[in-house]
Structures are given as structure tokens and as C-alpha cells.
Design a protein around this nucleic acid. Sequence first.
DNA 1: CGGATCTTTGATTTCCTTCAATTTAGGTGG
DNA 2: CCACCTAAATTGAAGGAAATCAAAGATCCG
Lengths: 233, 233
Amino acid sequence: MADLDSFECKSCKIGLTNIFSHLTLDELDKITIQKHCKIFKPGDTIYRQTNHLSGFFCIEKGIVKIYKTGPKGRPQIIRFAKKGDIIGYRSVLSKEAACTTAVALTETLACQVSSNVLFDLIYHNASFSMEIMKMACDELGEANDYIMDLAQKTVKERLAEVLIKLCEDFGLDEDNILQIPLTREDLAGMVGTATESLIRQLADLKKDDLIELKGRKIKIQNIAELKRIAAGF
Amino acid sequence: MADLDSFECKSCKIGLTNIFSHLTLDELDKITIQKHCKIFKPGDTIYRQTNHLSGFFCIEKGIVKIYKTGPKGRPQIIRFAKKGDIIGYRSVLSKEAACTTAVALTETLACQVSSNVLFDLIYHNASFSMEIMKMACDELGEANDYIMDLAQKTVKERLAEVLIKLCEDFGLDEDNILQIPLTREDLAGMVGTATESLIRQLADLKKDDLIELKGRKIKIQNIAELKRIAAGF
DNA sequence: CGGATCTTTGATTTCCTTCAATTTAGGTGG
DNA sequence: CCACCTAAATTGAAGGAAATCAAAGATCCG
């Protein structure tokens, strides 16, 4: 296989859309020189809770599950990251150990950019810096929403909400099938409930013709009604 | 009353400890010139969910409750802010409406610094910028912890955790009494449960001599055991 | 084809919410 | 300073949502 690290960031399409769009060509070259890219197979760990990260990752391809492991060992999924997303930056900026684990769900190509380079960019490029801040603040806003949902909504309401969010983030194909392959366990981990409870709620939504199920494929039939449920009145 | 706005930021003790410690005297003067300080009585609203904020606030004195209102109208407390804390910055940086409401719990003095000044500082002072990022990332880390707690811990475990956190943030007096005056409702809003459930769990902790209750005063008797419960094994 | 993993269903139990009623506390004006 | 009024806190009882436990069925993959 060709050396993954030798590919140039300035010709990477992803850099046009995410935080890297605020960098100069020189800055992109700096990243190219020292980045390390790697392919992760489904199930491979990208970084682990309590690890100290030497840099953040930019996802070039694939879907990554980001979760915390609870006191009883049960995983709580915080979010799913996909092409163009940046992961691990929180721990780098806070100079703390990672508080989450990141595992590839599908085959993933991720490039690691060292902390030094990140700090250097932040110190010399204010708009880049601003973008990082905006990213952190957006994530914080979503985390706050999630906190309220967990505290105040039922499992069914949260499931509807998660389905909507997955639609927005990963889209539907021509048959309205959700483009992220999740086990029931992962879906439960996202909703914050037991697998069995999740399955019952899925069955419920199916009974009301809001979704259709074929194995792990979830077909979204009535997004409006799902949104109504997610709102939770 | 003297004009609150005329007090100089460079002689403000609080600026020595929080994000403002990374500013030059000139920069502090810029803030002094345009800031607007205001006293809020207990119960007064500092900003409201859905408001667009013209700037963030620095708390000079007092305790502020920051919460989201749920779909059924029930408030979910996200955090309590105190002297030296910065609030409302998320909404300013994201250029979104506030996703929380901030209400004074005790008499509060808060200074509002306009978005323009904030952006200007971020663009011209990289260490300040770095501090803001660190603050956002810290808050994000705590939010992620909170998400896991809500999804996986029992009410009693979460209550123990909240008590520990309140100890750390607001301290105890010489009699080991928690230095934040909360109604049972607010405490419930923080733990993410119904007021009645909270009361029962408080009674439980009291029965086991982990705490003592005198009205709203909570005396912490056995912090080690509280920590053990909070860990939730 | 066979074993392992994932999914589903049923039964039971636990935790928590909700509703209703009572007690207590805090604040105010006489 | 006390009586009164309102808001807050507490307790009890009942119901419901979700977790857990156990077992059966389906699916995937080598």
C-alpha cells in the first residue's frame, strides 16, 4: 500500500469544508509533513479513555463511535464522528487524558496531527482558532441538549430524537434507509437505555408505521411524526 | 449608588485568577470602557433561553443558576456559576441564541462585555484565546461526564456526586455546611429527578449519617462514603 | 453447516414518578 | 414579637416506565 502519510493536505477535499479551510497552503504543508494517517478496521480502537493523546485526529473516511465507559462497564455513546470531523481535540486542548474511547464502526481512515502543530496554528492563525472554538461550543450546546433529554424525556422520545439526529448526520438512501449500520446495542448506548428496552421501543415505532426494520437497516417512514415524538410534549 | 461601570477591570481582583489574567493592561482598559455592570437580586434573570446576547458576562459576586427549560416546562440545571466565572460565552461564540437561562440565586454583580470586544481580544491575543478554548473544553468534559451519569447512575449516586461537586465548587464552612443555599427543587433540578425523589434520597443519606439537614443547610459528615456512592459500583 | 453473536420476546422486579395530603418554614404586616 | 399567609418541604400510596433475568429465535460468517 502507498504511504498514507505522504498524501498532501492541501489537495485533500475534506480540508475545504471543515476547520482546515481557514489555513494557508503553507500551514497545510506543515501538517502534511508531520501527520500520521492510519486505516482502522471495524472494531479497531483509535484512542482509549485515560490515554494521553499526542494529537487530535481528522477523519478522512468512515464512521467512528465515541463513548465513555460507565462505572458498571456499560458504554455510553457520546456521539458518532464521520468524514471531516475532528476527534480527540478536547483532550489535547485541556491537556488531560482522553475522557472517551473512539472505535471505528466501519473501515476508517484517520490522520493524527500532533499537539505542537495544533497549538502553533492556534497561536498564529486567529480564524482557525475561532473555528476550533466554535466547534467546541457547538459540541457543548449539543451536550447540554442531551443532558436535558436524558433527564426529562422517555426512552421512546429519546429514540425518536436519536433517529432524527442520525438522519441529519448520516442521511438516508433512495429507499429512506438510514446510512449508518448500528447494532441494537450501539443504538441503545446512544439512547441511553438497555438493549431490550430499545428493541421494544423500536417495535413500537414500527407498529405505528413510523419506521420499518430489516435487520440493521432502519427505514424512516414518517419523519414528521418522529419529530413530534422527539419534541416530547 | 456609584456608577458600577466606572470601576476599572485592571484593579479587579477577579481578573487575576480567571481568563482575564492573560490580558494586557491596555486590553483590560478596553473592557473597562465599554462593559456594563449590573446588580441582580435573587430571582432576577440575567439572560433567558432564546435571547440573543450582545456579550458574555463575568460574575463579580454571587451565585447564578444556569438551566434549560424542558419540553414539559421542567427546568434542568446545567451548572451553577460563581465569582470569577464566565457565562453566556457559548452563545456569543456560536452566534446562536442562548440555549440556557441564567438566574441569580443570591445577590449578584455581573459585568457584560460586548461580543465585539471578545472577538477583538480573541483575534489579537492568542493566550487569551487559548484560555477560552480550555474553558469550553473543560465544560464539555464535564458535560460528557454528566451525560454518562444521567444515563447510567441511580438518583442516589447522582445526588452523592452533586453534593461532592458542590463541595468542590462552593466549599464548606467551619461546621462542614455547604456554602450554597439551594431549595430542594433546585437540588432536584441539578440531580435530574423529581423533588420528592430527591427528598427521599436526602433522607436516606441522613439516615446513614452521611449528611445532616437543617432546613436548607446541608452538613457533610462523611465525604469519603459519599464519594464511594458517587462512583457507583 | 455449525458455532457464535446478535436480536427478540416474556416475566419479574426495581426504581422512580406522580398525585394527594400534611407539616414545616420563611417572610410580612399588624 | 406574634399571628398569619404563602411557599417549600415532607410523607404516603399507587402506578408506570424501564432494568434485569432468562430463554428462544434469527443471522452472520467462516
